[in-house]
Design a protein around this nucleic acid. Sequence first.
DNA 1: TTTATCATAGACTTCACAGGTCCATAATTG
DNA 2: CAATTATGGACCTGTGAAGTCTATGATAAA
Lengths: 159, 159
Amino acid sequence: MQFSKSTDYALHALIHLGLPERDTNVGIKELSATLGVSESYLSKIMSKLRQDGIVRAVPGVNGGYELARPADQITFLDVIQVIEGRQQLFECSNMNSRQHQLLAQEGAAQQEQPARNGCLVEKVMEGAEEHLHQYLREHTIQTVLDEALKHRSHESHKK
Amino acid sequence: MQFSKSTDYALHALIHLGLPERDTNVGIKELSATLGVSESYLSKIMSKLRQDGIVRAVPGVNGGYELARPADQITFLDVIQVIEGRQQLFECSNMNSRQHQLLAQEGAAQQEQPARNGCLVEKVMEGAEEHLHQYLREHTIQTVLDEALKHRSHESHKK
DNA sequence: TTTATCATAGACTTCACAGGTCCATAATTG
DNA sequence: CAATTATGGACCTGTGAAGTCTATGATAAA
């Protein structure tokens, strides 16, 4: 149960694109050199980000990538869902086991409750996932940029 | 990024052990029949739970498993960490990339800040993980049992 | 219009691990 | 002792993460 390295690379790449000093397009060479990942592998990740409208890409000389929208409108959840997919964190694998039938016995016997209300374990997990998502929606690429710049200015202030 | 099926099985097995009607030990046969999983596979999961002190096991005739402590003291987090391991949700894979050096440049230049404060992306993720864990600590096997029994009594009340 | 530069997409490889089976062994009770 | 139950290890298989390589397509500068 861990986020993939691709998610790591994607987030770091987006942060690089969001740094204020560089307003022009950033090529895959610079990105891969900065992150320490191969160009070919990082390319696929960037492609995914482009397909989902997180970044824009222009080919040709002086081409490269740039953020498709302001850094404070790219949430951690956005990035994670693009790379990891949108499958839910937990999925009950045996909804017609004897256990689930037992836990819903009365309703089924009298046909009063035709809508099988799903797995109780799954419900708890859905709550957990929603909590997690809420947090990840509140944190954006800009959040990290702010933190980085705060450190910098704090250091240069001490000087 | 999904919890494994083993976690699913473990949680459902613990719920079965926590049901009030059965006070005696529950064998692997009954468990596997109830959950719809093979005995051999479920055995290994139960062994893990035993090694971590979640359940007790007694071999021999009329042996089986029982909860090692009250159901309200077995949290979802406990179970998940036993099965999935205790590795963190996110780990920055290239802490000495050019990007991290750039984001910590001033401090390094003047040697005033020898302690490299970790990756900023990782920090956000650690916050997310802590949120998730908090939720998972607040939900126990008893939480699900209560929910299940509430449904039952609600149904029989309508009758 | 050619050419160098860049992104894109697909095929392919490697490796680790989830998911699962099977068997031999040990412990317990009647 | 014998039947029953849990434990541990060896083993198999499929899938997906992680990564490389190559051919193709788009673009801008010369």
